[in-house]
């Protein structure tokens, strides 16, 4: 394995283990909200997208409408569709493998895959993150649901900052080198924060996709990029 792919796998394992541990918080929150241990674990197995899971559990805890809770959770999962659009050419999965791959297209795997310089290390990073995160997240959910909460609130150990720090670290090289990326990032943060008090959770982050549109417009004012040959780029 070449050094680029080794680095991608190392980053992926780091994200998978570090973010996966917050499954402890999810399992504990789910049981505290009134879900059974089996229900908490089933949600991590079949939904496998943290923000949506926390959203549904929050609605159950608040005694809210379950249908609205499920729809809200799906709204939060909407960004995974946009990630899939971006990752499809890189991952190149076909047939039954595509059905399996789809389940693993989430924030963390997208962040690691798109941080890589070329498609082979992008795929290595995607799978390293996917496998380590799936295992850690589901095991941590089980332990959290079984009462690992007695060990203390995961926030005590600063685990709530690990996710944002990981995303920032993975985006960092693109933010440092690309003017368009910096504009898109700042605009996206402004849109998401400004609309957070006004819209249901999940919508502000989806809405931040308009910042990417601004990036497209900005790019068109500069000389046209090479058209042919760019398709293969990761």
């Amino acid at each position: 394995m070449d050094s680029q792919r080794r680095a991608a796998v190392r980053d992926g394992l780091g994200v998978g283990l570090a973010v996966g541990l917050s499954g402890l918080a999810f399992g504990a929150a789910a049981v505290a909200a009134g879900l059974g241990v089996a229900q908490a674990c089933a949600l991590s197995v079949v939904a496998f997208t943290g923000a949506s899971q926390f959203a549904l559990v929050g609605v159950v805890a608040g005694g809210g409408n379950l249908l609205a809770g499920a729809l809200g959770a799906m709204l939060l999962g909407g960004r995974n569709a946009l990630y899939g659009l971006r990752l499809a050419p890189t991952l190149g999965a076909r047939g039954w493998r595509r059905l399996l791959t789809a389940h693993l297209v989430i924030d963390e795997t997208t962040a690691v895959a798109t941080a890589q310089p070329e498609p082979r290390s992008a795929r290595a990073g995607f799978w390293a993150t996917a496998v380590s995160l799936y295992l850690t997240w589901n095991l941590a959910t089980l332990f959290g649901a079984l009462g690992a909460a007695r060990l203390g609130n995961p926030e005590t150990y600063g685990l709530d900052v690990v996710g944002p720090a990981a995303f920032l670290a993975l985006l960092w090289p693109r933010l440092v080198s690309g003017g368009t990326e910096r504009v898109v990032a700042l605009l996206a943060m402004a849109v998401a924060v400004a609309t957070t008090p006004l819209l249901p959770p999940g919508v502000p982050v989806m809405l931040a996709a308009v910042a990417a549109l601004a990036g497209v417009v900005r790019r068109r004012r500069t000389p046209p990029a090479r058209r042919a040959g760019e398709l293969s780029k990761a």
């Binding site: 990630y83 990326e181 898109v184 996709a209 790019r219």
Partner: peptide, 17 residues
């Protein structure tokens, strides 16, 4: 171009939120 920039936009928005 749009799909290439979407992860940058959504992930930085996620960091902020």
């Amino acid at each position: 171009r749009f799909t290439a920039l979407v992860p940058v936009a959504l992930l930085t928005a996620l960091v902020a939120v």
